[in-house]
Amino acid sequence: MKKINCLIVDDEKLARDILEEYISRVEQLHLIATCTDGAEAFNVLQKQSIDLVFLDIKMPKLGGMDLLKTVPNMPPVILTTAYNDFALDSYQFNVVDYLLKPIPFDRFLKAIGKFNNLFMPAAAIAQEQQHSWQTAPFIYVRSEKKMVKVPLKDLLFIEGLKDYVQINLRDRTIITHQSLNSFEEKLPDVLFMRVHRSFIVGLQHINAFTMRSIELDKREIPIGESYAVNVQRRLQQT
């Protein structure tokens, strides 16, 4: 597995310590350096090969937004901040995700998943998919007062309806009252993708796609307008 070289930029020691600890839990990540402000980070970026930057926004000397404007060919960035004021402005830069402090570990992992989806080479994604089958070959969902096993390799797509969710497998459907958002959090990002407010699809089952829809096992799944850019970018990389 190719290591992702990471840089932490934050003036708060506690925030740096938490991110260091999170990074140490993920085998794929390798911490190159930590910096206390944007000026220090600027120097590191000139000398080191960095794949991913965890960047605070409000810092002395040179803040996060100023660093984004200053560095040409900035590596992908995950913003880590206590302020949500800059969320909209940040996406004009190479920002993968916007994490609000305090950052839960599961939300940190979700951001790493987004990075993988956008920037991992297709070969690395395939390797990660194989690993995901081995480590998480199935999930359980509650349906008709019992817990039902759902093999991930057979999961075509999940559709969110008014009061329930329909899980569509190769050979059957399962109805559950869990939310579609809960499935988005639970399913491996390298294998599944949210393409519409009402649909999550299994990437390995996609036969064809256009700007507006995905063809999947003789079904046409719409691509939501707000999801379109990410979906096209993701599918064209695989």
Rank of each mutant, 00 (worst) to 15 (best):
L52Y: 00
V53A: 05
L55P: 11
L55A: 05
K58A: 13
K61C: 03
G64M: 05
M65G: 07
L68Q: 03
L68G: 06
L68M: 09
K69T: 09
K69L: 06
V71Y: 15
V71S: 10
V71K: 09
P72K: 03
P75R: 02
P76H: 14
V77Q: 06
V77T: 14
T81Q: 08
A82P: 03
S90L: 08
Y91H: 11
F93C: 03
N94E: 14
D97Y: 13
D97T: 01
L99C: 13
L99Y: 15
L99H: 15
L100C: 09
P102S: 08
I103N: 12
P104A: 07
I112M: 06
F115Q: 03
N116Q: 14
F119T: 04
M120P: 00
P121V: 12
A124T: 10
A124Q: 14
A124Y: 11
Q127G: 13
Q130C: 05
Q130F: 03
Q134M: 15
Q134N: 13
I139S: 04
R142C: 08
S143C: 11
E144Y: 04
K146R: 14
M147V: 02
V148P: 02
L152D: 10
K153N: 11
L155V: 08
L156S: 06
G160W: 00
G160I: 00
G160T: 05
G160A: 15
G160P: 00
L161E: 07
L161R: 13
